[in-house]
Measured scan of single mutants.
Amino acid sequence: AVSDRLIGRKGVVMEAISPQNSALVKVDGETWRATSGTVLDVGEEVSVKAIEGVKLVVEKLE
């Protein structure tokens, strides 16, 4: 799938994300809905860990 190429890519949080709420991230110039197990604020850099349906699963870039 096209989205599989995004695993391992870096992105930027466009809307705050919490474990209860998905929000938008920008990866390679494209906007995607994403979820995370932690709270992520706007502007934080993230890494794509997986794809669940049409959502990216991201975590904060260390």
Rank of each mutant, 00 (worst) to 15 (best):
A1V: 11
A1D: 10
V2E: 08
V2Q: 09
V2S: 10
S3C: 11
S3H: 11
S3A: 11
D4Q: 13
D4C: 15
D4E: 12
D4V: 12
D4P: 09
R5S: 09
R5H: 09
R5G: 07
R5P: 05
L6H: 02
L6M: 08
L6S: 00
L6G: 00
L6F: 06
I7A: 03
I7F: 05
I7T: 04
G8Y: 03
R9Q: 08
R9S: 06
R9Y: 07
K10T: 12
G11E: 03
G11V: 03
G11T: 02
V12I: 12
V12A: 04
V12M: 07
M14K: 03
M14S: 04
M14N: 00
M14V: 14
M14H: 04
E15C: 14
E15K: 09
E15S: 11
E15R: 09
A16N: 08
A16K: 13
A16R: 13
A16Y: 14
A16S: 10
I17Y: 13
S18P: 08
S18K: 08
P19S: 11
P19I: 09
P19R: 08
P19T: 11
P19W: 11
Q20F: 13
Q20A: 11
N21I: 08
N21D: 08
N21T: 10
S22R: 06
A23N: 05
A23I: 15
A23E: 03
A23S: 07
L24P: 03
L24F: 09
L24D: 04
L24K: 06
K26M: 14
K26E: 10
K26T: 08
K26L: 14
K26G: 05
V27W: 03
D28A: 07
G29D: 08
G29Q: 05
E30N: 07
E30R: 08
E30V: 10
E30F: 11
T31M: 14
T31E: 09
T31W: 12
T31C: 15
W32D: 00
W32Q: 00
W32P: 00
R33A: 13
R33C: 15
R33E: 14
R33Y: 15
A34E: 02
A34C: 09
A34S: 05
A34V: 08
A34D: 01
A34T: 07
T35P: 02
S36P: 02
S36A: 09
S36Y: 07
S36H: 04
G37D: 15
G37K: 13
T38V: 10
T38W: 09
T38L: 07
V39T: 12
V39G: 08
V39M: 12
L40R: 00
L40C: 05
L40A: 03
D41L: 15
D41R: 15
V42P: 07
V42D: 02
V42N: 02
V42R: 06
G43S: 02
E44G: 05
E45A: 10
E45Q: 10
E45S: 08
V46C: 04
V46R: 00
S47H: 11
S47D: 04
S47M: 15
S47A: 09
S47Y: 15
V48L: 02
K49L: 13
K49S: 07
K49D: 02
A50C: 08
A50S: 09
A50I: 04
A50V: 03
I51V: 10
I51F: 06
I51E: 01
E52M: 11
G53S: 04
G53P: 03
G53R: 02
G53T: 03
V54L: 14
V54H: 14
L56H: 02
L56Q: 00
L56W: 00
L56I: 08
V57D: 02
V57S: 04
V58G: 00
V58W: 00
E59W: 04
E59I: 10
L61G: 05
L61Y: 10
L61T: 08
E62D: 11
